[in-house]
């Protein structure tokens, strides 16, 4: 397991609610993938979602920016309720950054262009200003020297850091991470986790689907365990790892921690 080398300083959480999911149900055809998901995330809160594959963790966070539709329930993001209105969905997506398992960088654009695309075309910033912002974030993920390369020329870890920078350039209020280290070679996991820890230190509201339990221990305010489309357990990390309640959680932890 990879332990991040830095740990974020503890700041008191504000009471402002950034995400509220209420009784979310989702079906793929007849298959009930999400069953009554309720989740409230406060500003600056960092949540790690874990669970076996197929448990609905990715689907859950993908509902928050409407990459997945759901059939029942309601989601309010930063005071705005998700609806079927395309403009409303786009407004919410602007405030919610997302980092994917397979990076999903745009291969036909340079690293810098990947980072400026959103600010220029969605935020309508002038090119000069967008490039300044992009360089600032590329420096923060420690790869400013790659700005004019194409994603295909970078290593997996570097690509994922570019993907993080690309999301940050939109100045989002919330960051969603969908298994950001699962597709990486072991020696590259740490550089990505370290980047995420620095982000946490700045007080970013984060929801992270991951199996990196070291990251969960040092960074998360809450760990959520999902199985079979349900939230089984929801606890601060120190309790979650030492006193899991449900049998399923215990089984999962024993599988993931002892190998």
């Amino acid at each position: 397991m990879t332990e991040p080398s830095v740990s974020p300083t503890v700041k008191p959480l504000s009471d402002q609610i950034m995400i509220r999911m209420e009784a979310i149900h989702k079906w793929y055809g007849a298959f009930h993938v999400l069953k009554d998901i309720n989740l409230t995330v406060r500003k600056g809160e960092r949540i790690v979602v874990c669970g076996p594959s197929g448990s609905g963790k990715s689907t859950t966070i993908r509902c928050i920016n409407r990459l997945e539709e759901y059939q029942r329930g309601r989601i309010v993001v930063d005071g705005q309720e998700l609806s079927n209105d395309v403009k409303q969905i786009e407004r919410i997506r602007r405030e919610v950054g997302m980092v994917f398992q397979h990076f999903n960088l745009f291969p036909h654009l340079t690293v810098l262009e990947n980072c400026t695309l959103g600010p220029i075309w969605v935020r309508k910033l002038p090119r000069r200003q967008a490039e300044e912002i992009a360089m600032r974030y590329l420096e923060r993920v420690r790869i400013p020297e790659q700005a004019n390369k194409y994603p295909g020329q970078l290593s997996g870890g570097q690509q994922q850091r570019v993907a993080i920078a690309r999301s940050l350039c939109m100045n989002p209020k919330i960051m969603l991470f969908d298994e950001p280290t699962s597709a990486l070679d072991p020696e590259m996991i740490k550089e990505v986790l370290d980047t995420m820890v620095t982000l946490a230190e700045d007080g970013m509201t984060m929801i992270c689907v991951t199996h990196e339990m070291g990251f969960a221990k040092t960074v998360a305010h809450r760990v959520i365990f999902m199985d079979g489309g349900e939230i089984i357990e929801e606890k601060p990390p120190e309790e979650f790892f030492t006193h899991p309640e449900s049998e399923r959680t215990k089984l999962f932890l024993s599988q993931i921690l002892h190998h």
Binding site: N65, L67, V86, E90, R91, R93, R94, V96, G97, M98, F100, H102, N104, L105, F106, L117, G118, W121, V122, R166, S167, M170
Partner: peptide, 22 residues
């Protein structure tokens, strides 16, 4: 790949911009 559409959507790009730019 589907991921390209999703990454564009996650940035808040609309249909025509996603198609035209990505």
């Amino acid at each position: 790949p589907k991921g390209q559409f999703e990454a564009a959507a996650a940035l808040g790009l609309g249909y025509w911009k996603t198609m035209g730019l990505i």
